[in-house]
């Protein structure tokens, strides 16, 4: 799996160009590309979810990986 997998995904077909996500992004990771929102500075993204929350057309998705953290106290083998 490449690292770029774990970045916000923006569906340009769904995006209506309202710009809310760009305004909302706290780190200026988002910008414009062909009048659609795009992740222009992926290194800046802190995965805060603000863009996904604000998008009115559900054009943005943040994928998550579910995993266990091993606690020293965990009893299971």
């Amino acid at each position: 799996m490449s690292d770029t997998q774990w970045l916000p995904r923006i569906d340009a077909d769904l995006c209506n160009g309202c710009g809310l996500c760009i305004t909302e992004c706290p780190t200026e990771a988002l910008g414009w590309k062909d009048e659609k929102a795009a992740l222009v500075h992926s290194d800046k993204c802190i995965y805060c979810n603000a863009c996904e929350d604000v998008c009115p057309v559900y054009a943005i998705e943040l994928p998550y990986l579910v995993l266990r953290v091993n606690k020293a106290t965990q009893e299971k083998p």
Binding site: W6, I46, Y47, L62, P63, Y64, L65, V66, L67, R68, V69, K71
Partner: peptide, 8 residues
């Protein structure tokens, strides 16, 4: 934690 949902 970033893109991880950790079951703690």
């Amino acid at each position: 934690d970033r893109h991880h949902i950790q079951i703690v």
